[in-house]
């Protein structure tokens, strides 16, 4: 089996660079679930960096789509109910657990935070269990 690791590795390094830039410039952790959840209240308080970060995510996606549309050639194959249920659990769970793949996974582990290492092991473990069980029953 041939594993293409160049794209994942380069992409990972770019994610690290983006996250380091935010920490260097703003002193903020690039935790996307937290940024997303706090955007409405922060924007009302005229604190705009979060909404700029989110606009950046969309802008970067637009750049990728216009230069290399084949990067988006994948499809979404699960039934609609999976996306609805998934969104609810991801939204609620990342707030309760104070972070997602970016905040705990990318930033927290690099800071050697015990909370983030625990969270990452748990959400990857729960993800593995879910995919495995789904494979059994469906």
């Amino acid at each position: 089996m041939e594993i293409n690791f160049i794209y994942p590795l380069v992409g990972g390094l770019i994610i690290g660079a983006a996250s380091s830039l935010l920490q260097f410039g703003l002193g903020r952790i690039s935790g996307i679930s937290g940024i997303l959840a706090n955007t409405p209240s922060a924007t009302l308080k005229k604190d705009y960096w979060r909404i700029f970060f989110l606009m950046g995510l969309i802008f970067g996606a637009a750049i990728c789509l216009s230069f290399k549309p084949q990067l988006f050639s994948y499809t979404f194959e699960a039934p609609i109910i999976s996306y609805i249920l998934s969104g609810l659990l991801v939204g609620f769970g990342t707030r309760l657990g104070s972070g997602c793949t970016s905040g705990h996974g990318v930033c927290g582990i690099a800071r050697l935070s015990k909370r983030s290492i625990t969270a990452t092991l748990l959400f990857i473990g729960a993800g593995i269990a879910t995919v495995t069980l789904k494979g059994f029953f469906l």
Binding site: S82, V90, T101, T120, A129
Partner: peptide, 21 residues
């Protein structure tokens, strides 16, 4: 909160393959 939240998130992540970013 951290433990239960992360497990709930992981289940949701496994269902769709999509996380917030």
């Amino acid at each position: 909160k951290l433990v239960i939240g992360s497990i709930i998130f992981g289940i949701g992540w496994g269902l769709s393959g999509i996380c917030p970013g």
